[in-house]
Simulated assay, not measured.
Amino acid sequence: MAPSNAAANNYEQYHQSRMEMMSKAIKAIAFKKQETTKVFQKGDEVEVARQEYGFIGSYYTATIISSVGAYHYRVKYHTLSNEEYAPLKDVVTATEVRPLQPHQHEFMRGDNFCLYDMVDVFSKDGWWFGFISGKIGQEYYVYFPTTGNNIAFPPRMLRFHQEWSNGKWIFPPRQGQIFDLY
Score class of each variant (00 low, 15 high):
residue 1 M to N: 07
residue 1 M to A: 10
residue 2 A to I: 14
residue 2 A to E: 11
residue 3 P to K: 05
residue 5 N to H: 10
residue 5 N to K: 14
residue 6 A to F: 05
residue 6 A to W: 03
residue 7 A to R: 15
residue 8 A to H: 12
residue 9 N to E: 15
residue 9 N to W: 06
residue 11 Y to E: 15
residue 12 E to C: 05
residue 13 Q to A: 13
residue 13 Q to D: 13
residue 14 Y to W: 13
residue 15 H to N: 12
residue 16 Q to W: 04
residue 20 E to P: 00
residue 20 E to T: 12
residue 21 M to I: 08
residue 25 A to E: 15
residue 25 A to I: 11
residue 26 I to T: 09
residue 29 I to A: 11
residue 30 A to R: 08
residue 31 F to Q: 11
residue 32 K to A: 09
residue 37 T to C: 09
residue 37 T to E: 04
residue 37 T to Q: 03
residue 37 T to F: 02
residue 38 K to G: 00
residue 38 K to Y: 04
residue 41 Q to Y: 06
residue 41 Q to W: 02
residue 43 G to D: 08
residue 44 D to K: 06
residue 45 E to Y: 10
residue 46 V to D: 01
residue 47 E to D: 09
residue 49 A to R: 13
residue 51 Q to D: 12
residue 52 E to R: 13
residue 53 Y to S: 11
residue 53 Y to H: 10
residue 56 I to H: 06
residue 56 I to Y: 03
residue 59 Y to M: 11
residue 60 Y to M: 01
residue 61 T to F: 07
residue 62 A to Q: 02
residue 63 T to A: 10
residue 63 T to F: 08
residue 65 I to W: 04
residue 66 S to F: 04
residue 66 S to T: 13
residue 72 H to R: 14
residue 72 H to G: 02
residue 73 Y to T: 03
residue 74 R to D: 06
residue 76 K to N: 11
residue 76 K to D: 07
residue 79 T to N: 14
residue 80 L to W: 03
residue 81 S to M: 10
residue 81 S to E: 10
residue 81 S to V: 14
residue 81 S to R: 11
residue 81 S to G: 02
residue 81 S to T: 12
residue 83 E to L: 12
residue 84 E to W: 02
residue 85 Y to C: 07
residue 87 P to E: 11
residue 91 V to T: 14
residue 92 V to T: 03
residue 93 T to H: 09
residue 94 A to T: 07
residue 94 A to W: 02
residue 95 T to P: 00
residue 97 V to T: 01
residue 97 V to N: 02
residue 99 P to Y: 04
residue 99 P to N: 03
residue 100 L to N: 12
residue 103 H to Y: 11
residue 103 H to M: 09
residue 104 Q to H: 04
residue 105 H to Q: 12
residue 105 H to V: 09
residue 108 M to T: 03
residue 109 R to P: 00
residue 109 R to L: 04
residue 110 G to C: 04
residue 111 D to T: 14
residue 116 Y to P: 00
residue 117 D to L: 14
residue 118 M to C: 11
residue 121 V to L: 06
residue 121 V to Y: 01
residue 122 F to D: 01
residue 125 D to G: 02
residue 127 W to M: 10
residue 127 W to L: 14
residue 129 F to Y: 15
residue 130 G to V: 09
residue 132 I to S: 00
residue 132 I to T: 01
residue 133 S to D: 04
residue 134 G to K: 08
residue 134 G to M: 06
residue 134 G to H: 05
residue 135 K to V: 02
residue 136 I to Y: 05
residue 136 I to D: 10
residue 138 Q to C: 06
residue 138 Q to N: 10
residue 139 E to C: 12
residue 139 E to H: 07
residue 142 V to N: 00
residue 147 T to G: 12
residue 150 N to L: 03
residue 150 N to W: 04
residue 150 N to I: 05
residue 151 I to L: 15
residue 151 I to G: 00
residue 151 I to H: 08
residue 152 A to Y: 05
residue 155 P to E: 07
residue 156 R to S: 08
residue 156 R to F: 02
residue 157 M to K: 15
residue 158 L to D: 01
residue 159 R to T: 03
residue 160 F to W: 06
residue 165 S to N: 09
residue 165 S to D: 05
residue 167 G to Q: 04
residue 168 K to R: 14
residue 168 K to W: 03
residue 169 W to K: 08
residue 169 W to Q: 06
residue 173 P to N: 15
residue 175 Q to A: 12
residue 175 Q to G: 09
residue 176 G to F: 07
residue 176 G to P: 07
residue 176 G to M: 12
residue 176 G to Y: 06
residue 177 Q to W: 01
residue 179 F to Y: 15
